[in-house]
Design a protein around this nucleic acid. Structure first.
Lengths: 205, 205, 205, 205
DNA sequence: TATGAATGAGCCTTCATTCAT
DNA sequence: CATGAATGAAGGCTCATTCAT
């Protein structure tokens, strides 16, 4: 009980937080490679160098660990996205900025993204995932808002805006499955590629 | 061992095959909802109405069952795709036909697709999945071939053909996550939507 | 899930119930000797001759097993007690009959009684123990009723009836801690001894 | 090892002893409520306000802590009992004095008594409990001696002295399960009640 | 074909205890 | 004196699979 109580003294606290992030990152890597359920806690302890019980200083449970991975993925992204849409730029520019931020985030959190995608069924069903679901929804809403503003100011014309958004989500969410850091394309280029595709679609109606 | 010996007499055989397909479909549904690993065989027996042992008349193992689900997804799709590209039609038309067949297949195998997507890490890593990996690769190759022929005959111009293909794969593979049969869009419209998007991109370079 | 589903076919069902009772009896013995918490499930599997998982065909969980032990203790005793008080006999005779039945039951369920006593703190606190608590309370109420009737018809006179009842409960409940089947005193003698003590107390006021 | 080294300087020593007694009392309370095994050391640290390691300055181990609880229960009681029987009073008076001392002690150590009772199986079996067992035995022997002297001087007549003693032990040991300090009956009244019951029994033969 | 009892390895987690600080 | 990170054995339980019936 109350195993996961971060220390209150600043020095210890900082070390604790650092290690916790390491644990989460390691877990994300393993889960992405082998699947969440297929990864045993003992594989995780081996990978972290901690012993069975030691791990539980930093996490509450395997399930909560999964949630933490998703939080680390969504929270900063959503925050950045909110900054972007708060600035007074034209919709098309905002869309491009959002995509740049998004793809950059994906490039830095490939494992997190893969885990997030493949554990879709858990996220969708269980009540303790409500917050995560809300964050994802909020991010998608932000994207849609930009498209709406684009239609409003006459710079974008979609035959079916909802469908366009889903198309975009599909492309982007699929990216971590093929992208790798040593590949030909960087996140910026990919973001531009997606952006061009959508804007071109919005120009034709 | 060798529990799975389909009967040889035609009448029995047919019933056997029908039940086997039912089992696979039920499994696909459960796996899609709860995840492959998270679904226990006893949940599956409950859903099929069979008892623990009875199930094993129709499947060899849980893993083989997963492979069967993917086979039911990929085999007919690949076959149909080969027919399409064997016909003497211009690339753009073939692409549209492929997308129509593909989306129609997805509409009829949503659960299979979801399972296929979320078990990516297994499919990618284990040796017994070679055949499945080969089929997927073959299908993607067929798509690429069409684009190549489009470039060759001057009807398509891609800035980056590989990227375009990945974009397309992303959109399509994401579809089962949002599409539902009672929704506004049917598989044909979606296929057309994707096709237009790609062709428009290929027209602009 | 649904591990504990007794078979429906009568023949199997009977064997199942018999084995289940064996498991419960074995568990009662071990728990009485070593304590509930201190007895591991693997000690129990060893004692039953079943393997780890096989045990769980007959029980839902270790906790539920504890409840079953108490049920096997209280249910038949309460039933018998109700029969006794339903008969039209004078209170003193009923009291004696109750004590005879009670002590006979204890003699046949010494382990159950010891477990019941030493797990008092669980029984008292947890909600899933409500039914067991209710049964115990009901039995004690039956005893008190007899004393009340004894006072009513003028054959018993207690200075403090509640205290007399507690005294009786103390004696009886302590019995399993010292009694053994090969000892000098049989359950009938013990019952008579307790009965005489109480009746003598009730005669003096 | 040898963590438990009480300080030698008197002032520190006193504070140390006080805290140690607090720890034992807190432990007794928790163990009585939840059971010994079911209470984790971390629950105990939380209740004492100490951290994991700090606790071990005051106790050697969880098991030794249990022994300490029983020592705190039995040692002063046995000492007091010896004083009582050392005085030159008639057996019946000594018995009453013993019961008064006993019940007063129980009233002040309800938690200790409950723990002592419910951990019977440990006390009975393990070698390191020999001393505790000896104390209990010694106390019971003292009681029996008084009854023997009562029989010897003709003031008591038991049909079965051993049985009478067990009856008494049952009543008294059961007391902590129902008595509470805010109840109607004080320890003296209870002691008198028990004493009267036994003496009345001893008068009738 | 089908049943369901049985297996046993392996799962996640807890917990008493130690020790560097 | 006290902290809290860390250990690692053991805990209860699950689950894919087998096999006598």
């Amino acid at each position: 009980m109350a195993t996961v109580t971060p220390p209150t003294r600043p020095a210890l606290r900082e070390r604790y937080e650092r290690r916790r992030r390491e644990v989460i990152a390691t877990a994300a890597r393993l889960f992405a490679q082998r699947g969440f359920q297929a990864t045993s806690m003992s594989e995780l302890t081996e990978a972290t160098g901690l012993a069975a019980g030691g791990l539980y200083h930093y996490i509450e449970s395997k399930d909560k660990l999964l949630i933490s991975i998703c939080d680390e993925l969504l929270d900063p992204l959503l925050e950045r996205a909110r900054e972007i849409v708060a600035e007074p730029a034209p919709p098309a520019e905002q869309l491009r900025a959002l995509l740049h931020a998004w793809l950059a985030h994906i490039a830095g959190h490939r494992d997190h993204m893969l885990v997030f995608a493949q554990e879709r069924h858990v996220i969708e069903r269980e009540p303790q995932w409500r917050r995560v679901r809300g964050r994802r929804k909020a991010f998608e809403q932000l994207l849609d808002d930009v498209l709406v503003r684009g239609e409003a100011d006459g710079t974008m014309h979609f035959e079916d805006r909802g469908f366009a958004l889903l198309t975009l989500l599909g492309m982007v969410n699929y990216t971590p499955q093929w992208w790798n850091p040593r590949g030909r394309l960087g996140p910026e280029q990919i973001a531009d590629g997606y952006c061009d595709l959508i804007l071109r679609a919005s120009a034709s109606a």
